[in-house]
Simulated scan of single mutants.
Amino acid sequence: MIDPHLFDPAAVSEEIRAQNADIVAKLAALPDPMSVPPSVVRERRAQGLGPFPLMPSSPRAEVIEIAGPAGPLPLRIIAPDNPRGVYFHIHGGGWTWGTAAEQDPWLDRLADRCGLAVVSVEYRLAPESPYPAGPDDCEAAALWVIREAESRFGTFRLFIGGESAGAHLSAVTLLRLRDKHGLTPFRGANLFAGCYDLNLTPSVRHWGPERLILNTNDIRVFADNFCGRMSDRTNPDVSPLYADLEGLPPALFSAGTKDMLLDDTLFMASRWAAAGNRAELALWPGGCHVFIRFDSALSEQALSRIDAFLEAL
C-alpha cells in the first residue's frame, strides 16, 4: 500500500517548502498565461520568463528530420559513444508549449549515466494542431526509432518516457504500437507526472486557482486545446487511463505529493499493475508538478531513481 507518511506535511523538507513558496509568489506576480495566445507564452518560456528555469543546450545535440504525417518531423538526438540503448523521449508542456530542446541536461544525464542515445521528438502542438496531430507525430517518431535503432545506434534495447503531457503521449504511443502495429519493443517506460484522464481527475478538479506551476483552469485549457473537436474524452487514444493496458512494459510512475496531477499517477500505476504489468510508484514529498526542473536534493533523488530503474532493465 502507499505509505501515508509521504503525504504528511512533516515529510516535506525546508528546501522544498521554500522552493514551492517561491514558485507560487513568482507566478502570482506574472500575467495569467491563459489570458494570452500560446505563441506569446512560448516566447516567454524561451526567454526564461515561464515557471521553469532555462536549461542549457547540449553541445552534442543533433537535429535531424524524418518523414512525418504532415511533413518533415524534427528529432533531437543526444548520443554517447557506443550506446547501450535508445531512449525515446517526449517533452511536456500541456500539449501546447514546450520543445524538444528545453531539457537537454536530462537527456545528457541519460546519455552519460545510463549509456543511452536519446531521441526527443518535436511533435506538433495544440491548439494550432489538435488531436490527433501530436499522437500521430509521436507514433511516427517511435516507429522510426524501432526501425533505425540497430543500424544507427547499434542496439535493440529501447526505452520510452516523458514528463507531464510527454508521459501521456508516451502511454498513448505504447498503446498505438501494440494495437495498430502489433509491436511491444520498449523494455521500460519512465512516466513522470503524467495526465492520463482528460476528463480531469479529482486532484485536478479540487486544486483550485493557486498556481504551483499549474492550476485547475490551466489543465482544463490544455485539455481543450489538445482535444479540439474530439468530444469523447474516454477514448483511450485521448485518455489512456481508460485503455486495456495488458501487455505493456515495466513502468516507473513518479510524481510529487504537491502535484495537482497526483491522482493521474496513482490511478494509472494501479491500472497498469492490475493489467498484469510491472509498475513501480515513486512519490516525492512536497514535490510540485515536474519538480525535477528545479535543483534540489529531492530532484536528485528522483532523477537517481529513474537512472536506477532504466539501468536495471
Results as ranks from 00 to 15, higher is better:
W106M: 15
G85P: 02
A111M: 07
R109Q: 14
G228F: 13
L125T: 00
A67T: 02
L54T: 05
V63D: 15
D232C: 05
R152T: 12
D81M: 11
D244P: 04
D232Y: 13
T99S: 15
H206W: 03
Q301F: 07
T216M: 07
R205N: 08
T99W: 13
E150Y: 06
D32F: 14
H89P: 00
G115K: 13
S296H: 01
H89N: 08
L177R: 04
G182Y: 15
A21D: 09
C288H: 01
E65S: 14
F291R: 12
E300Q: 12
H91P: 03
N20D: 13
A282M: 10
L143W: 00
I2F: 04
D136M: 09
R124E: 11
P69M: 13
P127Q: 14
S231G: 02
D3F: 07
E280M: 10
A142H: 02
R233Q: 05
S35L: 11
V290P: 00
I23P: 00
D22T: 11
R44A: 08
F153M: 03
L303S: 06
I213P: 01
E280C: 08
A79F: 02
F253P: 03
L143F: 00
D32R: 11
I16Q: 06
P185C: 10
A223K: 01
L158F: 02
